[in-house]
Design a protein around this nucleic acid. Structure first.
Length: 216
DNA sequence: ACCCAGGGTCATA
DNA sequence: TATGACCATGGG
């Protein structure tokens, strides 16, 4: 018996839940704005904030970069942490415009683009990787709390390991396939809400047979 | 009433 | 390097 592979887990999640078609968002820029707004925040609140931006013609890098921080904070209020996120969005948009916008950035090699994104105050590893995968379509695996918890419960890794160590692990064990990475991360998040939260007994969990934590 | 959500920064030791 | 405080709304 070959040991359970990451790809096998992906297949099980896909079979159970179907394709998730992440990231919700009409444009790469909207995806990037959403990535900042969703930091430690439920997606439903982010949708309200983005709807406010759209309603005010403010889902636009120039508008966000130039408008008063107070006004931006008011628009994004439903997403929580509105003062700090207003600053983060402005930091990001100013950097984004300085570099020439999406058409210029899309030509950057992945590693340089990643370092550039991380240089923006308010963009950390997970936010940068969301942007790289879902806006720039680079084969970067996003690590989040759900990923740590799921694979830790499955006994497939140590959830206490650092972000870069875990990201490297996933990227080495899987083929560098953008569509695979997009779906895998989306399925992990969906799974965390749909089934893995139903404790005890992990009722209905499609991974229960492989999960040592099932039945606690 | 409590818990958490598709994190990140900064001060402190 | 490694904790802890802080940010703040909205749904379960």
């Amino acid at each position: 018996m070959p040991r359970k592979t990451l790809h096998a887990i992906f297949e099980q999640l896909l079979a159970a839940y179907g394709p998730q078609h992440w990231w919700p968002g009409e444009t790469p820029f909207e995806v990037m704005v959403g990535a900042v707004l969703t930091q430690n925040t439920a997606w439903g609140n982010v949708e309200k904030a983005i709807a406010n931006l759209v309603a005010n013609g403010a889902l636009d890098a120039e508008v966000i970069a130039a408008c008063p921080a107070r006004r931006l904070a008011e628009w994004i209020r439903p997403s929580g942490y509105f003062n700090i996120k207003a600053r983060r969005l402005q930091n990001f948009c100013r950097w984004y415009l300085e570099q020439g916008g999406f058409e210029a950035l899309r030509k950057w090699p992945t590693q340089e683009l990643r370092h550039g994104l991380l240089s923006v105050n308010g963009v950390g590893p997970e936010t940068a990787d969301d942007m790289l995968l879902y806006a720039f379509e680079r084969p970067v695996f996003v690590i989040d709390a759900y990923t740590r918890r799921l694979f830790s419960r499955l006994g497939m890794l140590d959830g206490e390991l650092g972000y870069e160590t875990l990201r490297r692990h996933f990227e080495e064990e899987l083929p560098a396939d953008v569509e695979l990475f997009k779906e895998f991360h989306a399925l992990i998040v969906y799974h965390a809400k749909a089934a893995c939260r139903k404790r005890p007994l992990c009722v209905g969990c499609p991974l229960a047979a492989a999960c040592p934590a099932a039945g606690d």
